[in-house]
Simulated assay, not measured.
Amino acid sequence: MKFDMNYKKFMEYFAKFSLGLMIVAGMYILIKPATKNVTSYKVNEDMTYTGKLVHGKFEGNGVLATKDGLYKGDFSNGRFVNDGIFIGKDYYYIKKGDTVTIKYNNGRVFVKEKDKWKEVDSDEN
């Protein structure tokens, strides 16, 4: 089998291939999410974040430490979502599924049911 191509024709095909490759690479760079994992990322003077950032917003499972306490849970587009726990100085705020519970260090426990808070025995939770 003989392959006969002159230099000019070869360079024409090579240029088209190179241009196509550059276009595909450029599109990939433009549309790929700018994701990075961070540790103790300083959000502001009183707040640090450990987890994943996508386009500068909290994403996935992470830890947000503030002067008032520590939140550990899920984030999406920079907001709290799904399950998580906030550990404050005097209480724990726990969200699991549709249930929200606040447990105070003094033993009092409150559960949110149908948009109303109800105090329950600490043994129930």
Rank of each mutant, 00 (worst) to 15 (best):
M1S: 12
F3N: 10
M5D: 09
N6Q: 05
N6V: 10
Y7V: 14
E12Y: 14
E12T: 14
Y13H: 12
Y13Q: 04
Y13W: 09
K16W: 11
K16C: 06
F17C: 14
L19Q: 07
G20Y: 07
L21V: 11
L21P: 10
L21H: 02
M22Q: 06
I23T: 06
I23W: 03
A25E: 00
A25P: 05
M27W: 09
Y28W: 11
Y28T: 12
I29H: 07
L30G: 13
L30P: 05
I31R: 08
I31C: 01
T35R: 08
N37S: 13
V38G: 08
T39D: 03
S40K: 08
K42Q: 10
V43G: 03
V43E: 14
N44V: 13
E45T: 09
D46R: 07
M47A: 10
M47C: 07
Y49I: 02
T50Q: 01
G51H: 00
G51L: 09
G51C: 01
G51K: 00
K52T: 13
L53A: 10
V54C: 02
H55G: 11
H55T: 08
H55C: 07
H55Q: 12
K57M: 09
F58S: 00
G60N: 06
G60P: 13
N61F: 02
N61W: 00
L64V: 00
T66K: 03
T66D: 15
T66S: 15
T66W: 02
K67I: 11
D68G: 03
D68H: 01
D68T: 05
L70G: 00
L70C: 07
K72T: 14
K72H: 06
G73C: 07
F75Q: 00
S76T: 04
S76A: 08
N77Y: 04
G78P: 15
R79S: 06
V81Y: 06
G84I: 00
I85K: 06
I85D: 00
F86P: 05
G88K: 00
K89G: 04
D90N: 14
Y91K: 12
Y93R: 07
I94G: 04
K95H: 00
K95T: 05
K96N: 12
G97T: 09
T99D: 11
T99G: 01
V100Q: 13
V100M: 05
V100N: 04
I102T: 11
I102E: 02
K103N: 03
Y104Q: 08
Y104G: 10
Y104T: 04
N105D: 15
N105Y: 05
N105A: 12
N106R: 09
G107Q: 08
V109N: 11
V109Y: 04
V111D: 07
V111W: 03
K112N: 13
K112P: 09
K112Y: 00
D115Y: 03
K118A: 13
E119K: 06
N125W: 07
N125H: 03
N125D: 13
